[in-house]
Design a protein around this nucleic acid. Structure first.
Lengths: 206, 206
DNA sequence: ATTTTTTGCTACTGGTCAGTATTTTTTCAC
DNA sequence: GTGAAAAAATACTGACCAGTAGCAAAAAAT
């Protein structure tokens, strides 16, 4: 029956999500190769063959984590770009939203950056495409802002986009919750720096 | 005899350096855990026990690679900071020299960033201290420039230093030799961006 | 030439772990 | 309640690899 099947699918999806969460946490702590599936299973109070009922193999788990890491950032980017307003206000939105999500999902992001080498050729290529798409979208926004006179990019457009996305991607590797600055402070300070890079002149500067 | 002992030491040091080079290259390609010592030995046309005559264990090889990765950057930093001149010109020197060395030694730098989790607690702490020292030195330079009126840092001083060192550290993860831009072009463009962040006003601006 | 020492190699071990074959438990239709 | 089917656990295997014991060859000393 359709209703039952849907529920089963939901349950299956929930299982996968929970496994990914725990696996990402352990991969973050001890690395992909340093984490055994028995450990992942133990933390979820299940057994290894149980994991194999949801995933083909260990590599599939890693791929899903990496995909989620970049996908979260891309979703935030798309949402921010879609908002109405000037290039400048959309850049602000992009930085705020994407920085927020990469800090929140920092374990996924770090696993994704660190373990790319453990992906198959095909999987790695797919992930790199997503990343490229991210930088490209950002470059388009910079171009729009520069052409409209809102931004003044001093360096190569594409390199500037890569640098800005790099600044955001770098956040999870140094920011630790509970430090001197709160997450929101870090984001606002980072935003100031990025505005400087494009020399965004605020409309309502007093 | 002293003379002979020196030669032996030199030979031993040379052995170590060559092993580190090959190991760094393989760790870069397939990761620390994904590389066997037999592979490292094979590439050098020696055998695994030979490696054990130079290193205690696999972890020591990794530590030496990580240490070299950050040490190269620190040496470049110290050299640039020691040069005479304004804060602005010294910042230029730091960026040029450090960026150049991290791109040259990109395999070491990437291994160092990626495999920190495989270091022992003590080793990891030691490496982090070096890294911290780097950011701190950079923060001091920023402070000097701001106090002297050469720089105008809009954001938190320490976060700005971390961001700048992050931009440089990020270079090896996206720059591939033989791309659209040459190494020197990438460095000069990056320098323009970093100057923007601190809004360095050139003395001889026409 | 012969002994000693150094240097490197062959061959092995013990532990680990991804993935699986088989058995047990639970679920649920009737 | 009973039997079929689905879900999950136990217990195993085969490959891999860091690290080592002990042997062989070369170099140095006598």
């Amino acid at each position: 029956m359709a209703g039952r099947q849907e529920l089963k699918d939901e349950v299956a999806a929930f299982k996968r999500r929970r496994i990914l969460e725990e696996a990402a946490h352990l991969f973050f702590l001890s690395g992909y190769e340093g984490t055994t599936l028995d450990e992942v299973a133990q933390r979820l109070h299940v057994t290894k063959p149980y994991l194999y009922s949801c995933f083909q193999n260990k590599a599939e788990i890693l791929y899903d984590i990496c995909e989620a890491g970049i996908r979260h950032a891309l979703d935030a980017l798309d949402a921010s770009l879609a908002s109405p307003g000037s290039a400048s206000s959309r850049l602000d939105a992009v930085v705020r939203q994407v920085a927020s999500i990469v800090i929140e999902k920092r374990e996924y992001v770090i696993v994704y950056q660190r373990e790319e080498k453990n992906l198959s050729k095909t999987d790695a290529r797919h992930i790199r495409e997503l990343r490229k798409h991210f930088d490209h979208q950002l470059a388009l926004l910079l171009a729009e802002g520069c052409d409209g006179g809102e931004f003044d990019c001093v360096a190569d457009r594409s390199l500037t986009a890569t640098t800005i996305s790099g600044i955001i991607s770098w956040l999870p590797s140094w920011y630790v919750p509970g430090g001197r600055l709160t997450k929101d402070q870090v984001i606002e300070e980072t935003l100031l720096i990025i505005r400087r890079i494009v020399l965004a002149r605020k409309r309502r500067e007093k």
